[in-house]
Design a binder for these strands. Sequence first.
DNA 1: TGGAATTTGTCCGTATGTATG
DNA 2: CCATACATACGGACAAATTCC
Lengths: 246, 246
Amino acid sequence: MDNNGVALWRQISQTLASEIDEGVLSPGDRLPASADLASRFGVNRHTVLKAISHLQGEGLVRTERGGGIYVEKVIPYRMGARTRLEENLLEFSLAPSREILSVLDLRAPKKVAKALQIEPGDPTVLVTLVATADEIPVSLNQNYFPTARLPNIGSAFRELTESKEQNLATRAVLDAQGVTDFRRRSVRIRGRTPTQNEEQRLRMPPNEWVFEVEVTNVDADGIPIAYGVTSFCISRVEFTMEFDGE
Amino acid sequence: MDNNGVALWRQISQTLASEIDEGVLSPGDRLPASADLASRFGVNRHTVLKAISHLQGEGLVRTERGGGIYVEKVIPYRMGARTRLEENLLEFSLAPSREILSVLDLRAPKKVAKALQIEPGDPTVLVTLVATADEIPVSLNQNYFPTARLPNIGSAFRELTESKEQNLATRAVLDAQGVTDFRRRSVRIRGRTPTQNEEQRLRMPPNEWVFEVEVTNVDADGIPIAYGVTSFCISRVEFTMEFDGE
DNA sequence: TGGAATTTGTCCGTATGTATG
DNA sequence: CCATACATACGGACAAATTCC
């Protein structure tokens, strides 16, 4: 069964992991079919599948039903007051795109009202969208905007829904609404299991978790203009922060 | 079976979640036994278990086999250049403690050498410890120190291993080594499945994930003095960042 | 110290409602 | 209308771990 106390599937897993680490296999590359890997290592296909499943747990590869096994692109998401998702993706030379799923007029729930510094029940616009990089869904975003502060935000997003040009959406829409500058005030990151909706929208395996990132954006005067909760498929992204000065 | 298209277990789950949210049930509280909850809601115990299992997925409760069901304490971990884990825990009025598992002399692997700005193979000291809050393990920490920069760091930690006083360990040890001030230079957060070792050390359910946080600490002159990888049980902690000024 | 009681986790099975083709 | 699959809900029994006396 095992050569030296290490199970076969683990040896295979380590071999593939080091090949990814050394660059023999690059992000986005497609691995040989599991049957071919089995013959390469001289083991049963089930043993290869176990190794692959382990690599998937480590976030190194992603399997697509009927499609193949791919080396994961882990997107480094720089956290700062002014970083935007699209800019992060572009810098990593990925093709970003967004699809607006819905634009709803909604009365603010307690949590949203507190973040936006308005009264519970005040009118808000809830925009739900999916962000994608190189055809792979990365995040599911729910953003609340206060209607009183941004009266035309709803129709602006609804117009955008019709057109094909949905890139750099949030920034452009806010710009058109007269908000030329905005930044993050606070960020909260936690982990949880995905909802059924998230599993479908993000096309993620059922046992994988999500990063839930809660962000409040404020304009140049420090007045809240957006409160959003974004779910990231946990294996497709990592967060980085740099602390230059004090 | 269902009242209005919403499953019974989901209704129960939402009821309990709102009771936690409203403070009827406080962090650390023990819930009634599943059998009692079943009779309260007038359902089978299995239905309650499904609701509880869902709440556990959301990180709201934690179950202990034979022990009971407890409302989770999610520790808000403030991310900044100078925040320390112990200070976060104390501020949240938890009793922090650490247990040093091992102190090893090790030649620096490539990744560690790069972070510490030394040559691969240079001597380092690897300190492995578990941080605990209110008896619940929170994180498993692996910290590399460059021996050349901190010649006595190994023996300092080894002495500490014998004694019972292991609180505020890292700061005190570095202070004794002449490093009076240090701060974080960079942080990287990702998610992955736990290793077997982590499952045991952190006493976490097998299907739960971990936050892997990679931190490089530098002294007042910007010279790296520690490179560490910490695994947090994902449901027991959340990360927050505040961006005050620019 | 030790054993009984308590409590969660999991297995067996049965029945029903829902969605799909 | 039927066949199939799946989620929901219930009931009983026991294992495993903790608490209590």
